[in-house]
Amino acid sequence: MTTPPAPRQSGARVWRAADMADPSTWTWQLDDRHVDLLIEAAADPASRAIDAMRTEIMALRERLIEGRAFELVRGFPAREVGPAASAAAFAALGNVLGRPRSQNASGDLLGHVRNVGADLRDPTVRIYQTDRRQTFHTDSTDVVGLMCLETAAEGGESLLVSAGAIYNEMLDRSPDLAAALFEPVATDRRGEVPPGADPFFLIPVLSWHRAELTVLYQRQYIESAERFDDAPRLTDRQRSALDLFDDIANDPEFHLRMELQVGDMQFVHNHSLLHDRTAFVDRPGSPRHLLRLWLSVPGDRELPPVFRQRYGSIEVGNRGGIVVG
């Protein structure tokens, strides 16, 4: 029986669904002043209008990396101003919150999350390019931001869960399986391979470093890494640990569900929370469409050296993203 290296977790980022029952506690409702400043910043970045919101954006950053680890920003009139101005406003806010990072092999800093009809049987396809459920996972950056430009006809709900809350529950149920999450597992890079690197990386689901519990997880890509002959296979114990981790994450007692409305911006701290999206059906002629930012955030935690495999640099404020050339 192995003892987990991390103690029981506590603090604002360790929560269950009931703790987040009141949306007003995790929603920043923009007022007319905020909207005017964001629209001005979108129309003319040289105006520096966004600087008038800097204090509030820094408070948002603090809540992400030290508080509950997520926030919904609501009230931007995306339909009225159109997709180009909405994207520019989203980017302006994100550029104050952190440093944008590449999201794919093409180097896109502002990504598009929508169903492009991709086939998950293709090992280079990323799940966000489909209409399938994503399952709980993290992205390869400090903070992921989403902005909703169009909702689905059905489904497409956003789900969030606390890694610390899952870990505590695993300690209660099976300390040995909790300990297994700190062992390296192979994760498929899905064709986005840096020069000289393996087509998979070996990083534990949970890491304990500088008194911080950090999560990195995508179950489907762990499974698909086994297409490589030299990728380590999951042991039965590791597979049981991942199954229990998934079972807890999928328990409605643990995860929060929210529906993003047009104009909503959601920001999530990837090292503390996992996120998910339910399967969806597009509206004919007006498919579900979200914009995405990956942000490296100044003042965030240090990451363990093993994260260099995925992040390249682990320098705080200048790390993460996908670099293949």
Results as ranks from 00 to 15, higher is better:
C148M: 14
T141C: 09
E183G: 09
T151M: 02
T138E: 13
E183D: 09
D188E: 13
M147E: 06
H209K: 08
L181M: 02
I203E: 04
D176R: 01
C148L: 11
R190D: 08
F136C: 02
E169R: 15
P199S: 08
V205K: 13
F201L: 12
L171T: 10
N168K: 01
N168W: 07
D142S: 08
L177G: 05
G164C: 03
L171E: 07
G196L: 05
P204I: 07
E150K: 11
E192H: 06
S158W: 02
T135C: 12
L160N: 04
P184L: 11
F136R: 02
F182E: 01
L181C: 09
E154K: 15
E192W: 09
R173W: 00
Q134K: 13
R189N: 06
T141W: 01
T135K: 14
H209Y: 15
D188A: 12
S140Q: 12
E154S: 14
A180N: 11
V185T: 05
S158F: 06
L177K: 00
F182V: 05
D176Q: 08
D172E: 10
V205M: 13
A197I: 11
G156N: 04
Q134H: 15
A178F: 00
L202K: 15
E150C: 12
A163F: 04
T187R: 14
P184Q: 10
A186S: 12
P194W: 09
P184V: 08
G191H: 03
F136L: 04
E192F: 03
Y167W: 05
P195L: 13
W208C: 14
V185W: 03
W208Q: 10
D142P: 00
D176T: 11
D176Y: 06
A152M: 03
Y167M: 05
E154W: 13
S162H: 01
D142I: 12
S158M: 06
L159D: 04
L149E: 04
S174H: 11
Q134F: 15
S174Q: 11
V185S: 07
E157R: 14
D188I: 03
D139G: 01
Q134M: 15
I166N: 00
V185C: 06
I166K: 04
M147N: 06
C148Q: 10
D142V: 03
A163H: 01
V193Q: 12
Y167R: 09
T135W: 13
D142F: 00
P199Q: 11
V143K: 10
E183N: 13
S140H: 13
D176H: 07
V143M: 01
P194K: 09
V205W: 12
D198Q: 15
P184N: 12
D139N: 05
P204W: 07
Y167E: 02
E154M: 13
G196P: 01
F201Y: 15
G191V: 03
E157N: 07
D139V: 02
F136M: 01
T151D: 09
R173L: 09
A179Y: 04
F182P: 05
A180I: 00
A197Y: 12
L160R: 00
Q134V: 14
L171Q: 08
S174V: 06
V205C: 14
G156Y: 06
I166E: 01
W208S: 14
R133I: 13
S140L: 12
L159S: 10
T187E: 13
